[in-house]
């Protein structure tokens, strides 16, 4: 088999699998199920091997056993036998399937939860600290010479730096909308006391509307993503596969 024939064969199998999985759009059939199971089986098998070769073997086994310099007998890296203690701790996780011994599974779970919980303060701050800070936006323009930020083309470096440092009315308006959206969306989650004033109720309602608009935008972005995947499959069939068949021509 030549390399071109191999590529064409490989891509033909890919096309068959694509059609098989897309056939669910028509109806869920055995044809679809067949390819679904092949896909799941391949993924599970690949993951199992990759977890050993790329992770357990290199990160755990080789460190535990150490490494020789070339053919040996000198050690390039000594073995750390303490790594052996990780195996029984890891295996304890599987005792969750035994009614009698499932208490042991709590040991690895406890270690993981303890480590995870201890790190959450830093995680929370790293995630939300800069976001809270960036919410504090200036809302009063510092430069009224133009409604919008002027284009950079043709400006000297000093002028460009001044433009970059100024807040123009259109930007200030954007910041006002941002801060209002933040406060309105935030007010929607006030459940500690009953909102009675008309202003707060209206602001709360505005928050709900803005949240809905936000969810709509997120959904739109998701839809764009799904289309990109479908377009790529079409390109795979109509361009890559057809090209591979054309390469078979003498």
């Amino acid at each position: 088999m030549t390399i071109d024939q191999y590529i064409a064969f490989k891509l033909s199998l890919g096309v068959l699998a694509t059609l098989g999985l897309y056939s669910v759009l028509f109806k869920e059939t055995r044809f679809y199920r067949f390819f679904e199971h092949i896909f799941l089986g391949l993924a599970a098998g690949y993951t199992l091997v990759a977890t050993w070769t790329d992770t357990l073997y290199q990160v755990w086994w080789q460190r535990m056993m150490g490494q020789f310099q070339g053919e040996g007998p000198k050690m390039a890296e000594p073995g750390y036998w303490a790594y052996a203690a990780l195996l029984p701790i890891g295996l304890m996780g599987y005792t969750v399937f035994s009614k009698r011994n499932n208490w042991m599974s709590r040991i690895p779970i406890g270690i993981i939860l303890g480590m995870w919980s201890g790190q959450q303060i830093l995680v929370w701050w790293n995630t939300y600290g800069p976001q809270l800070y960036s919410t504090m936006q200036p809302i009063w323009p510092t430069n009224w010479s133009s409604m919008t930020k002027p284009p950079a083309a043709g400006l000297s470096p000093e002028q460009a730096a001044e433009v970059a440092a100024s807040l123009y009315p259109s930007q200030a308006l954007t910041n006002v909308i941002f801060v209002l959206t933040f406060l309105a969306a935030f007010s929607y989650f006030i459940f500690s006391f009953e909102l009675k004033s008309k202003f707060l109720l209206g602001f709360n309602k505005l928050g709900r509307w803005l949240l809905m608009i936000g969810f709509g935008a997120i959904f739109g972005s998701t839809v764009m993503g799904r289309f990109a995947l479908e377009i790529d499959r079409m390109a795979f069939i109509w361009i890559e596969w057809i090209q591979s068949l054309q390469n078979l021509r003498p």
Binding site: K149, P151, A152, A153, P157, A160, A164
Partner: peptide, 8 residues
Amino acid sequence: VSFSEKPT
């Protein structure tokens, strides 16, 4: 392609 927010 101009980046009016960051002209520098």
